[in-house]
């Protein structure tokens, strides 16, 4: 079966339960929002799904992506993309360099893919620029494009809009969700902003 699913995921830290047990099924194209206060383990759940959970945490339960068990799979083999509240563009690479970093090594026409991504982000001709010369909104769009260029089979959003200016946030939500729906991949967002959940428009799980 396709999509992202996890069963009875429980996270412990220092012997105390942080989150769970939690089970969810996300069909391709579905957007699910998890809402909860800070410290409720939302971000750790995403790290668990990515395979980058800090060793201080103990996790039980299982996660499946497109029918394969993710247990023990290295982060770089999972093909799960993630966006944080910071754009985390690599400061040593140009805008195009950041996008090219994400394209699988064997893909032909890397330059065409980069240019197409720049066009989608309404940033034609910005490829050679230093990421620091872009505005916050532009950087956020590059960050999303970078995540999508890696051809993820699911995408996770970790409070992706919380650091943007209020007037930009609405536009960015539209941009992000439009692009994710176009790709028809499951999307799991964690946030504590009700407006994020409303914009996502899918199922909302409150912790």
């Amino acid at each position: 079966m396709s999509g992202l699913a996890f069963r009875d995921v429980t996270l412990h830290v220092a012997g105390k339960k942080l989150l769970g047990p939690l089970s969810l099924d996300l069909a391709p194209g579905a957007v699910v929002t998890i809402m909860g206060p800070s410290g409720s383990g939302k971000s750790s759940l995403l790290a668990y799904l990515c395979g980058t959970l800090d060793r201080a945490f103990a996790a039980t339960g299982s996660a499946m992506l497109d029918g394969t068990d993710l247990t023990g799979v290295a982060p770089e083999k999972r093909r799960i993309g993630i966006l944080f509240q910071d754009d985390l563009l690599f400061p040593h690479l140009s805008v195009a360099g950041n996008l090219a970093f994400a394209i699988p090594a064997n893909a032909p026409d890397r330059k065409v893919l980069v240019d197409a991504a720049l066009a989608e982000a309404e940033l034609d001709g910005y490829g050679a620029r230093d990421p620091t010369t872009l505005s916050g909104g532009q950087r956020a769009r590059v960050s999303l494009m970078r995540a999508l260029l890696a051809e993820p089979r699911a995408i996770l959003l970790d409070e992706p809009f919380s650091k943007l200016d209020a007037d930009l946030r609405g536009k960015m939500r539209e941009f992000v969700f439009a692009h994710i729906r176009m790709r028809k991949i499951p999307c799991l967002m964690v946030t504590h902003d009700e407006a994020d959940a409303a914009a996502a428009g899918g199922y909302i799980l409150r912790l």
Binding site: A47, T52, A74, R79, F84, F101
Partner: peptide, 18 residues
């Protein structure tokens, strides 16, 4: 920031490439 390495891994980069 450890998230640089994490996001690179999530973009498909092997530990050596990261």
């Amino acid at each position: 920031d450890p998230r640089y390495a994490r996001i690179a891994a999530c973009l498909g980069a092997s530990p050596l490439r990261v």
